[in-house]
Computed example of a mutant assay.
Amino acid sequence: MEKKYSEFTDKLFEAILTLKNVEECYKFFEDICTIKEIQSLSQRLEVAQLLQQNKSYIEISKETGASTATISRVNKCFTYGTGGYKAALERLEKGEK
């Protein structure tokens, strides 16, 4: 079976897991991503949170500025994906790190 990601993808996630706080995350992500990429990632998480709250696409679009295509993609992942959004949102809600 062909591996979906490379060993460098593993290294990326291992590097992220070494970060100790939000400030370190800002520093790392500002170095590795563009501001627009960071904004897009955070927007997707916000969309997932609003989908979890059963908000409509129109409400989510107005609140976040996300396109309906983005909302639809996040909804597909949120509903049928691997559970990553749900796990992260649940832990954020509980205040876990």
Rank of each mutant, 00 (worst) to 15 (best):
E30I: 08
I32W: 10
I32R: 14
Q39L: 07
L17E: 12
Q53W: 13
Q49R: 15
I60N: 01
V22G: 07
K62G: 00
E24C: 06
V47I: 12
I35Y: 02
S61P: 06
I32Y: 12
I16L: 07
N54T: 08
I16P: 00
L51Y: 13
V47W: 09
V22D: 04
I35Q: 06
Q49H: 14
V47Y: 04
S40D: 07
S56N: 12
L19I: 06
T34D: 03
L45V: 12
R44Q: 01
N21C: 15
I60R: 00
S61M: 13
E24H: 12
E23D: 06
Y26F: 09
L45F: 14
F29K: 02
Q49P: 00
T34P: 01
Q49C: 01
E23N: 10
S56K: 08
N21A: 07
S61Y: 13
I58P: 00
I38R: 15
K27H: 12
I35F: 02
N21V: 12
A15T: 14
V22P: 01
F28M: 07
L51W: 15
S40H: 09
L45N: 05
S56I: 05
Y26A: 06
E23M: 03
R44A: 01
N54F: 11
Y57S: 13
Q53A: 15
E37P: 09
S42T: 05
K55M: 01
V47G: 11
L17S: 09
Q52L: 13
S56R: 15
S42G: 13
N21S: 11
V22M: 07
L50Y: 13
A48V: 03
V22F: 04
L41S: 01
L41F: 02
S42K: 05
L50A: 05
D31M: 13
E37K: 15
L41V: 02
I35M: 01
K55L: 02
Q49M: 09
Q43E: 07
Y26R: 11
I16Y: 05
Q39A: 05
L45E: 10
T18G: 06
T34C: 02
Y57K: 03
V47A: 13
I60V: 01
I32S: 08
F29A: 02
Q39P: 00
E46S: 11
Y26H: 11
L45K: 08
